[in-house]
Write a protein that binds this DNA or RNA. Structure first.
Length: 299
DNA sequence: AATGGTCAAGTCAGC
DNA sequence: GCTGACTTGACCATT
């Protein structure tokens, strides 16, 4: 079991997702931003290793505007050596990597142009992970997309698009249940048709489900990951006390996390903490996991 | 140096 | 019809 956090380390004093305004685009600006971002990513990964955090989500902003038509910068060639070195470091440290493109990426949109831009963006994610020479366990997680008043049609559109994707992207892509549109059961239906692995988001599941218990879903979604995909990834969060249902907690709720660990015992999973204070909660989560004899040696 | 409006992109609920 | 939420703040024009 690995425990990780997404994109940002709040304490380290740098950010790996520095970007700029589209109208400020220049190749020089691009190169300098990416260069800074990669330096910060190296620092974060080194910090993670020191703190026994072996799961990390790289921000999609690491290469700003990578899939935008304005970007003619050959970032892959320019940063080839550094990307390989970072990937090598991460692999040697056994830090698992994931990415999560943001809400604009929708493969099942009825609008062809949206789908096409989404595929471009996903191909950038694939190119980045491939450039780091990461194995098949480094995944790109994506929600199924929009409903557009007809969930069945939306699901079958997703399947149709998925089947035509580049195999390099297909082998990276996993789908995640969201908190208002597509449940883990919907994802299982898509898995039946496509064999795509399902990243189970236990918090989204509590917000949006059709009566299944979380431990049942852990089991069913866990089976969708093949050997080459690695150990199933799971997203974990808990409810923010003041905000609306579905808002992520500011800090880990240790009792809730212990309860989750308890139901996860039969399943070997890697846990991504989607909690606002990032590495701080990840450290606490690791302490909690290590203090429980049922998890010793597993993280 | 501090501030706050705005930022590439989509969908949908809630007003 | 507009705004806010999403996984998440940061850029940068203006003062």
């Amino acid at each position: 079991m690995k425990i990780g956090y997404p994109c940002i380390n709040r304490g380290i004093g740098c950010t790996s997702g520095r970007t700029f305004r589209l109208k400020s685009y220049s190749e020089e600006r691009m190169i300098s931003s990416v260069s800074d971002n990669l330096m910060c990513l190296e620092r974060i990964l080194a910090w993670n290793l020191e703190h026994r955090i072996r799961f990390f989500r790289i921000t999609s902003d690491i290469i700003p505007f990578a899939s935008h038509p304005i970007c003619i910068c050959p970032w892959r060639e320019h940063f080839r050596d550094r990307l390989e070195e970072i990937g090598e470091f991460s692999s040697r440290a056994e830090i698992r990597i994931s990415m999560h493109p943001d809400q604009f990426i929708v493969l099942n949109s009825p609008d062809e142009k949206v789908v096409s831009r989404s595929i471009d963006e996903l191909m950038y994610h694939t190119a980045l992970l491939d450039s780091m020479n990461l194995d098949g366990t480094a995944k790109i997680q994506l929600h199924v997309g929009g409903v557009y008043g007809d969930a069945k049609a939306a699901i079958s559109r997703f399947i149709g698009v998925y089947e035509r994707l580049d195999p390099a992207l297909q082998s990276r892509l996993v789908i995640e249940n969201d908190d208002q549109r597509f449940t883990a059961s919907d994802c299982l239906e898509i898995h039946e048709e496509t064999t795509i692995p399902i990243l189970f988001d236990v918090f989204h599941h509590t917000c949006h489900n059709t009566g299944e218990r979380a431990d049942e879903m852990l089991k069913l979604t866990g089976k969708t990951w093949k050997k080459n995909d690695g150990i199933p990834m799971v997203d974990y969060s808990s409810q923010h006390q003041e905000k609306r249902l579905g808002s992520h907690a500011e800090h880990i709720d240790s009792d809730d996390f212990r309860r989750f660990l308890a139901i996860s015992i039969p399943h070997d999973i890697d846990i991504m903490l989607e909690i606002k204070d990032k590495e701080k909660s990840a450290l606490e989560a690791i302490t909690i996991a290590e203090s429980d004899p049922r998890f010793i040696g597993s993280s």
